[in-house]
Amino acid sequence: MKKTLLILSVLFISLSNAQEIKQVPQISVNGEGKVKVVPDQATITVTVETKGNNAKDVKKQNDQQMEAVLKLIKKMNLNPADYKTQRVSLNPQYDYEKKKSNYNATQTIEILLRDLSKYDELMDGVVSQGINRIDNVVFQSSKLAEYQSEARKLAMKEAKLKATDYVSVLGQKIGRAMTISDNSQSYYPQPVYARMKSMEMSDAGAPRETLAAGEITITANVSVSFILE
């Protein structure tokens, strides 16, 4: 009986201590940091699409056009690691009215353009060599990790400022951080969907400039719990 009472006493003390630990005064806030930067590179996704009623001929035409596109890209001295074939397909399309099959062949290539001054030259070149579908253009920064770090620091500063503002009204101060949660979503640059354009020329005979990259925003979000002093 005495042993049972001793065990119950120890459990009661342990539970009391646990409750005291849980009752540490604290404040939880969110913080957001944003960094706006001018992009210095772009990922371009383009496709050669050919159609016809003979599968072999359609695929052959598609291969020839893509070969010309790749030759142009190599001529522009892009790093071989910066472009790759993304998708290849050859699909039958049955025409129920004419009761026969046609074929649709596509090859998609993704290009990382590290020098945006070559954008118009590249786009006009690939279109002239057989690209007939521009799927999307995504502007991004080569210093993404650096800007993400800056955004995280700004988010922490905002969280600390918020907490300080709230507790100052109560005559209290914030202490050390108890928990920090990163709520940032993976960074996905906003794609710019481009229409197929003809190779327009200016009055002087030079290609027109069609790129307006603007700015991209890199965002970080955190949740922080501070002890109250």
Rank of each mutant, 00 (worst) to 15 (best):
L112D: 02
D40A: 06
A220I: 04
E49D: 08
N104R: 10
L15N: 09
L72Y: 11
K143R: 14
A151G: 07
K160A: 12
T219V: 15
L78A: 03
V222C: 04
L15W: 09
E229N: 15
A159W: 01
L8G: 07
K100D: 04
K162D: 04
L154D: 01
S184M: 01
S128E: 10
P92W: 05
N104E: 09
S28R: 14
S117P: 03
R133C: 04
L211V: 11
A151K: 01
T108R: 06
A213Q: 12
S184A: 03
D124T: 11
N53D: 11
K98N: 05
S9E: 03
E209Y: 11
L11W: 09
K56Q: 13
E20H: 15
S142T: 13
V138L: 06
V48K: 00
N17W: 15
N136E: 08
K197Y: 08
Y147V: 08
I216A: 01
V88C: 00
K157L: 14
L15C: 12
Q148E: 14
A155P: 03
K34F: 02
P39D: 05
E121P: 01
E121D: 12
A206T: 15
Y94P: 02
K3Y: 11
P80N: 05
K75L: 12
S184F: 02
T4C: 04
Y94G: 03
V88P: 00
A68N: 10
G205D: 06
V48G: 00
I27F: 02
K99M: 10
Y193K: 12
S225C: 05
A206D: 12
L161N: 14
Q64F: 06
K74V: 08
K34D: 02
Q172F: 11
T164F: 06
Y188K: 08
D165T: 15
P92A: 07
Q41W: 10
